[in-house]
């Protein structure tokens, strides 16, 4: 059976919020190392990969590998009943029909309990190799979100160019064009607002802004975001979940050919 207790319900709430627009139905794969999720969007050009390590839970117990197939819209409805500060506990049998979700409020001894019906979802898992990216940019998640939303007003797609001069996001649309260039900088006062760029070769790729804007919903989960690029491979946008190697990753296929 599964029993996983999360100190703050906010974490799961934000994860589900961040991915529910990309993915409607997906499996939460639970094993002894933690809870993982991998799912693609409808057009199969973007992929979400989440890993919540066992360390993220106190306690965590999973005797057998269980796939909890859920509709994320339904899960959102249940999670809405939880306060951000509530303690959240997930419980399931070994071959479950329902996922039992328990919210405990530490303030006023309030306990609410929900059973969410599970569904069988056929999902193919893709093996994602560890990749050495040509360019890795770490920046404040709010900054990345701002760039994406600003440029989304200009165009459908953004071309990201990583060179020695810095990272240039440029968009060319019907009303005109615009670009944002970031240079590596380290903020002495606050570590979280610096921009780190690690570059091994010149990269230039084009991506759909609608998708990137969607990824940015995960900004609530983490102050920092890591963007990894290599020519002719999918872009990786990664948010850290806590300090225990748990993460939420988004992959997006680049636009090749008919660039606007």
């Amino acid at each position: 059976m599964l029993e996983a207790r999360l100190e703050q319900a906010a974490l799961l709430k934000k994860v589900v919020d961040a991915i529910k627009d990309l993915v409607q139905d997906c499996n939460f794969d639970c094993n002894d190392s933690g809870i993982a999720l991998q799912a693609m969007d409808n057009s199969h050009v973007a992929l979400v990969s989440m890993l919540l390590k066992a360390d993220a839970f106190h306690p965590y117990r999973c005797d057998r590998n269980i796939a909890l197939g859920m509709n994320l819209t339904s899960l959102t409805k249940v999670l809405r009943a939880a306060q951000n500060e509530d303690i959240l506990t997930l419980k399931a049998e070994d071959a479950p029909d329902v996922l039992n979700i328990l919210f405990e409020s530490s303030e006023n001894d309030r306990i609410s309990e929900y059973d969410l019906k599970l569904m069988d979802i056929d999902q193919e898992h893709l093996g994602i190799p560890e990749t050495d990216y040509a360019a890795t940019i770490s920046l404040p998640s709010a900054e990345f979100r701002r760039i994406c939303t600003d440029l989304a007003a200009m165009s459908e797609s953004v071309s990201i160019e990583a060179s020695k001069e810095g990272i240039k996001f440029s968009a060319n649309g019907d009303i005109g064009n615009g670009s944002v260039t970031l240079r590596s900088q380290s903020n002495v006062d606050d570590n979280s607002s610096g921009i780190e760029i690690v570059l091994s070769e010149h990269v230039s790729l084009t991506f759909s802004l609608k998708y990137l804007v969607n990824f940015c919903k995960a900004a609530a989960l983490s102050n920092r975001v890591k963007i990894c690029l290599s020519n002719e491979v999918p872009l990786l946008v990664e948010y850290d979940l806590g300090s225990n190697n748990s993460h939420l990753r988004f992959y997006l296929a680049p636009k090749i050919g008919d660039e606007e």
Binding site: V45, L126, I256, D258
Partner: peptide, 9 residues
Amino acid sequence: GMMKLSAFF
């Protein structure tokens, strides 16, 4: 112009 991810992974 966007390839499916299964083409990469």
